Simulated assay, not measured.
Amino acid sequence: MISEQISVAVPGNVDLPGDLDMPPSPRGMVLFVHGSGSSRHSPRNRAVAAELQRHGWGTLLIDLLSEDEEKTDAATGQHRFDIALLSERTATAIEWLSKYPVTHGVPVHLFGASTGAAAALVAAAQAGPVVSVVSRGGRPDLAGDALKQVEVPVLLLVGGRDPQVLELNQEAAQLLPADHQLQVIPGATHLFEEPGALEQVAAAAREWFLNTAEAHAEGHHLP
């Protein structure tokens, strides 16, 4: 396993730190797009990333805001719902992966949480190339009209005890033109803190990424 601390330069003279982990001959690369008030240190995303790594996937967890922006956001909430900014930086990270020697040529999938799911979907619609997207407790509705332009398979994971977010995901799913699936994790609340809930998320994401990677390689849609 190759583990590196990397930095991605984005417009505005900002460098975003990230943690890159690559197993030998990876199945693909999963870029994690965190949500409101979170960072690359999110224990939930790190738990999912560790499970994916154990099954042969490379992962990149990256901060979408600089330290100064984080401080401003903590005080004012200025950036956390700025989907245009977050999606632009996600797109830049996708481009970085396509050029970095260790990850060059490795197909990229996205895993978005909360508002990060909207940023991931916008990036998938506008930036490419992306193979598939998984949303955990996401706000895909915040992707707006970009939802209708997402041409890659999307898995929406929502807790069964998160009714408002579930309703928003149901409405967003109706706008997705490509293969998609809404999966409810029984008994889970928004943060999936219940015993076994996050393990179900990781297993569902792993299966989705594997199935979409195989379909992509063969030039097929999901069955």
Rank of each mutant, 00 (worst) to 15 (best):
R46W: 00
P153Y: 03
V158D: 08
M22G: 01
T115E: 03
P11K: 07
E67G: 04
Y100H: 15
S114D: 10
L168P: 01
G138S: 09
T103C: 03
N211L: 12
M1C: 06
A9F: 06
P163N: 06
I94N: 06
R44E: 08
V184E: 12
P23F: 00
V184R: 09
S87L: 04
Q5I: 12
E194T: 10
A178M: 05
L157A: 08
K71I: 11
S87G: 06
A125I: 03
G128H: 13
V154F: 01
R80K: 14
A213W: 11
L16P: 06
Q200M: 12
V184Y: 02
V158M: 12
A91P: 02
P107D: 05
V150R: 10
E199Q: 15
V10L: 05
R27W: 00
P140D: 10
V201R: 09
I83N: 06
L166M: 14
A173H: 13
S66V: 07
L31A: 10
L198A: 03
P43S: 07
S3W: 05
A118F: 01
S3Q: 15
D21Y: 10
K99P: 00
A202T: 09
I6A: 04
F209S: 07
L157G: 07
Q126A: 12
A188W: 05
P101A: 03
P195V: 04
A173D: 09
V184M: 02
R54H: 06
D145S: 14
A124K: 13
L64V: 04
E214N: 13
K99M: 07
L52G: 01
S132E: 04
A188G: 06
F192S: 10
I62S: 10
L16M: 10
P107K: 09
W208H: 11
E4V: 02
G112T: 09
K148D: 11
H109I: 00
L191Q: 14
A123I: 09
D63W: 03
S25W: 02
H79Y: 15
D141R: 11
R40H: 02
V48A: 07
V154G: 02
S98M: 05
A197R: 09
H190T: 03
T92I: 13
E171S: 13
W57V: 01
L121T: 10
H55M: 00
A205N: 08
R89C: 01
D162F: 04
V150T: 11
I6S: 06
E214L: 13
G18D: 08
L86S: 10
A172G: 07
D19M: 11
